[in-house]
Design a protein around this nucleic acid. Structure first.
Lengths: 191, 191, 191, 191
DNA sequence: TGTTAAGCGAGACGGTACGTCGCGTCTTACG
DNA sequence: CGTAAGACGCGACGTACCGTCTCGCTTAACA
């Protein structure tokens, strides 16, 4: 029952949409977020600037959609039989992505822009970040239902500890998020 | 034994320096990092642009020095008699700062710019961030020397957990770093 | 048979073009060439700087076009029946313009800039100055064809004498180019 | 009766004065007036900017004095026994100078600046230009006293014709002022 | 023989303007 | 009506010079 009103006029060009997303992703991957401008995206993707402004409010929103396209982030690992195993699987899947230098560059850009532009910040938090948090939240709920969850730390703190450490490594420490970190976090959270 | 070379020419104006730092801090506090430009700093502080460019490579460096001026960050809490007490004192002192909305705005700006400008990123990591890390590092060393340090988590991870959670709350969660968080972190790190 | 290639994109704004030319002319007329800057032209004409740089290489080129707009310089006096009469008519028409203080200010500015900027100097010589020279040249050719031209001075020297004296009065002597000068020059050139 | 008050304090440095004049002349000769700035003169001559501003009101005044130093312009040709011979000698001596490319560059610069800066314009007219005019004026007076002067053109016009043609060639035509021009002018003025 | 005052090289200062880049909006002709 | 093209008003960039103002030092005439 989706709104299927066939409106008059030319249809949105899927080809342009994909070219825009690819261009944005590549510019950030190759030259960093400082080199990303709407003008450059348009030039690289062979598109008019207006076509970008018609569909996205800011260049960061383009990049956010480009990330969603490049890396489907909604892959939930199949549930395991214990909290520790569930958590390990989640962390491995999450860190998998964060090992790709290009994805790292995009993530850092998005988090940076979220600090500078309040509007984008809200969108970023309420879509991307909230999604990730709720994925881990469901996992914790499942463990709690099973009575498998340790008293400490509390679920909310656990979530902050996991994503905090991950983002801190990416943003501040410039150290990789490797399997060692997975083991360490599991040891702390599911002792 | 400081380098006492009396260089020729007019001395640097301390008054201008302070006016610049104050202006930068206030613009970010009042209007956000998106409103910060070298031109505005100059106008607000009654200074020529060249005077800013003569002493700082980027506007973010101005802001970093302004933060150091506003909030002396080198206050080390006096050592307590246990790891838990030491850690609690450190966290309370650290979070004290991060409760000031203006300081928060500046911290978010600096971390954002560090993602966008590689040069500033390096300076930010190697001065500000390294300083904070080593303050906590010394505390952990002291505990280890006393045999007061739990086996888990390892010191490096402990540091990442503390600062990761702090920064994540500031950058991503937009939740305050309150005394509850202090208690929770102490419970996790010094059980 | 003009080039009728319908290029895509927004058309150049005639309104902005005229506002720019008027602003440049007025600034020089009111405050002198030293007060002319691209920034001021833009501010006075309510236009972005880029719009000026898009269409003119230097502010002097703007001024040159403004002069062409203000004073249509291609008015050739109708041929008379003798060299002396022809010459007198040409000089009167030419000096007419050079009696307007504003036009004088612009002419002095253009000649000054032509000395400082080689590129503009070439454009100024090959358009404006060459046009004026050839107007007088045709007049001399006509006289020569009629056998009406005295042996001395030769045509090339005659042209230098006329324009030299005119420009010298404007640039160096700050004396008006009046009807007396017309009579004097005719007496020298067509005795 | 010159003011011979022996004031205390350090004497003006003749060495700096000469270095400044030489630097100004060379910069214009080598790179054109557009490249002349007080800062560059100071750097090239190893002098502080203040030393320049202490003794000259503008960079054009420096250049004017530099020209006077390089080329002593007050050499009056020895009087001949006829107006035509006198005039020919004057023109040859005058054009001698105007054959040096470096001197040409300086003359063009001075005339240009005289159009832009009113204050310098007045000084330039009342010193340099007036000197040259009066040199020719004396020659004409001498001829008039001898009854050797033709009725046409009148002395004032003759002066304008000579200097007008000379300057026009230098400023507008970019053609050399050669011996041919000397002959032509003598033919026109002293037929 | 100091004391005083001017000149000096150096260079920081508050400004103005430069020419360029990017923003987000608009107008045009085509599909 | 979407699209590629591109002009538009605007704001900021980082740089060059402007003319002024300290600095510490040197160089004379005067006390």
């Amino acid at each position: 029952m989706t709104n299927q009103v066939p409106r008059p006029g030319r249809k949105r060009s899927e080809q342009s949409r994909l070219a825009i997303l690819a261009a944005a992703f590549e510019i950030v991957a190759e030259q960093g977020y400082g080199a990303l401008s709407v003008e450059r995206i348009a030039a690289r993707s062979g598109v008019g600037k207006q076509t970008i402004y018609r569909w996205w409010p800011t260049k960061a929103d383009v990049l956010l959609e480009a990330l969603a396209l490049k890396a489907d982030l909604h892959i939930a690992p199949t549930p395991q039989d214990s909290y520790a195993a569930d958590l390990r699987a989640f962390l491995l899947a999450t860190f998998e992505l964060a090992r790709d230098e290009k994805v790292i560059a995009v993530l850092r850009s998005l988090m940076a822009e979220a600090q500078i532009d309040d509007g984008f910040g809200r969108r970023f938090r309420e879509s991307f970040l909230a999604d990730r948090r709720s994925a881990l939240g469901e996992l914790l709920d499942r463990a709690a239902a099973r009575g498998d969850l340790p008293a400490t730390p509390a679920p909310d703190l656990a979530i902050d500890l996991v994503f905090g450490t991950l983002w801190y490594r990416v943003l501040a420490a410039h150290r990789p998020v490797d399997d060692q970190l997975t083991d360490d976090l599991v040891a702390v959270l599911a002792p």
